[in-house]
Design a protein around this nucleic acid. Structure first.
Lengths: 217, 217, 217, 217
DNA sequence: CATGAATGAGGGTTCATTCAT
DNA sequence: GATGAATGAACCCTCATTCAT
């Protein structure tokens, strides 16, 4: 907890950086603890005192890092949102036909949605948030709906994806992906990578045995 | 506010049936109102006073029908669960190969999950419930996981479904189906039937354009 | 605490009225207790628990009558304001020259400002109130500034009051009157009536011995 | 952030005086800022953090100058009190009949009560203070009540002031004077001097038009 | 002197629920 | 059955203040 005293003497500016870093680390620890509890117990059933308790501090110490419980949640959503944005941006820079890119997107989504912040973004009810933050979240969600739809449309156009209604297809895929957040356990038998690959394939390939003669519907 | 007292005296047995019926109707009205509010606003953000208000009764009148808020929720889950059970039972009595029955199951699920009680069952966090009720709900959920898996396994065996991991496939399908509860609006452009058909097809057929030469993964 | 039981039997509609009345009485008792404590201890230093304690109920019972602490204060201000309005209206209906009416106004003010609600209105900091209520209070205060100024102006015109700046004169008079709220004790030696008469005279007559030859300023 | 250490070494006594002076200046700045905020916002609604913020220092730095929030307030009262004492002492050294000296006292009071510390003394609720300090404040207030009463009594005796009850007259005058603190704005149209003169005259002269024949009450 | 971090006391408010009619 | 009143358990949050550097 205390930096070795000579550290202070030898480099007089270190303490500041040390402190600053320590603060950031604590802030992050706080967020990680909060997101875990919010996911494990639910936002409403998690009093800040429990978050504090798990961090071995008092409830009030939390207020050094955040102004309110809702602000913590807002930050969690922001972090989650960032992850999706980054993942999506990476996919958008890739080469390939629509189907290939869609599969990359699915993989990215699985990786993110199985991690804490991504899971929080996907699962926690955004109506807990203030109107303003909630709008930002809704906006972000619409943005990735749109990312999926765009790739699907691309795929349809370049022939890699069957003709379909992009909007509905995106809902199906995103729904299945968000479902992961409901049952995925980090300590389970499936690695995230395996899961991501499996989803990328299965969500696009379908389960029906292909039969040239089978008519639609 | 009070019915004239002679009404009760003149037909001494009617009142009982009348009352009984009235009671049941009120009970149902209560549940319908509660489920709507719980879905619209979230369980925690819905005080019983609001439920009562929408029913034009006092908060305390609710306690004539239910012992606690949680008991209301438990009943909602029970009703939702019943719907799934009934839908699944109907499908199980059907003829056809695994794929066909799976599609019927998907159709049934869509119909149920877009209705209030089914949506409640799918969307509201079962951790609000007491341990006992929660276990029952989990049990019911596992039961329909199992229904999906069984049909998928059947389909794989009878050749109507591609070889796959039934557990994961079920998760994907159920995830996508539950996702419907997040965006479906009764007053939207899609009829439930259309949606059900579309899901039955798309969740099994996949989006990738079939290409004989394309290797798996 | 309980009404005699036969009261209920003998007149079946009484209970409702009784209850209604009881409620109003309690509401008033609450307000009287609150205003006393707010005046004795100060608004901020009076937790609702103390108000409740003095009423022999729990803090939460207060919320049956008011939605928040501030709402209680707002109601106290409203009641105070009402008293001034009524007093002023009575004076305005009176006959007489400006000076006479001014003296009546002063008398009325003294009577009101020595009573609980009037004192609350005069002494408690209106910045405790929400913006909206505060504006209403400010409005009321400006209204009685204006009542004083008008009468003074009338008096100047009809020759009963010396030429003077009505605005400043009103400030002086109102200031002196509000000052009463700071030192008046109901159990003190001075009756309100005596005080009112004395103020009506002294605030208008002045203390300087009239000397025809004394030049102004 | 740190001054080079040799600065201290090269002129070992300057720093002390410099520091001492700087310290005093800061202390005064602190008090001036505090009194402004306490007057603008109210004592309870002014957290120390706001005082610090306006001074561009941290909240904790305040504790280098004062041991507690209440101690700051106590000092403000002390400074206010000092002003009144000084003003009153000056008047007491003057020549003239009771009325003349009373008018000087009023003038002095206006000047003081329109300045920050004097206004604080007049307007801020002394119940915020500890028992001990509060008693000192009450004592000071009684002292100037007494100053007014003495002059009034003198005036009555020397014939410059009409026969009256000195206690009540003092209350009226002081009340009117304290009222100034409630509406006076330094940036308003009235200069303090004008105001002081006007008060000195009007508070003693009265508003009623002198009429030899008018009987008292 | 000054700072950031942490703490404890305390208060307002929400809400489910019990009580007494 | 229904109602109004009352209660108690939580919980969020503000803020002055102490601690450790």
């Amino acid at each position: 907890m205390r930096p070795p005293p000579d550290t202070l003497d030898s480099s007089p500016w270190m303490p500041f950086e040390t402190r600053k870093r320590a603060r950031d680390e604590k802030r992050v620890a706080l967020l990680r603890t909060a997101v875990r509890l919010f996911l494990e117990e639910g936002y409403h059933r998690t009093p800040l005192s429990k978050v504090a308790e798990r961090l071995n501090i008092t409830k009030m110490a939390l207020y050094n890092y955040f102004g309110s419980k809702e602000e913590i949640l807002a930050e969690l959503f922001r972090l989650g949102s960032e992850q999706y944005e980054a993942g999506f941006a990476a996919v958008e820079r890739m080469q390939g036909d629509g189907l290939t890119k869609l599969r990359h997107l699915i993989r990215a989504y699985v990786v993110i949605v199985t991690a804490d912040f991504g899971m929080c973004f996907a699962r926690i009810d955004d109506r807990e948030l203030s109107e303003e933050t909630r709008l930002a979240v809704r906006h972000a969600k619409r943005r990735y709906d749109s990312a999926f739809r765009t790739l699907i449309r691309e795929g349809v156009e370049d022939g890699s994806i069957r003709p379909c209604e992009p909007k509905l297809a995106a809902f199906i895929i995103i729904g299945a992906l968000n479902g992961v957040a409901d049952w995925y356990r980090a300590d389970g038998p499936l690695s995230v990578e395996t899961l991501a690959d499996e989803f990328a394939l299965r969500l696009t390939e379908g389960y029906a045995m292909p039969q040239p003669q089978r008519a639609r519907a």
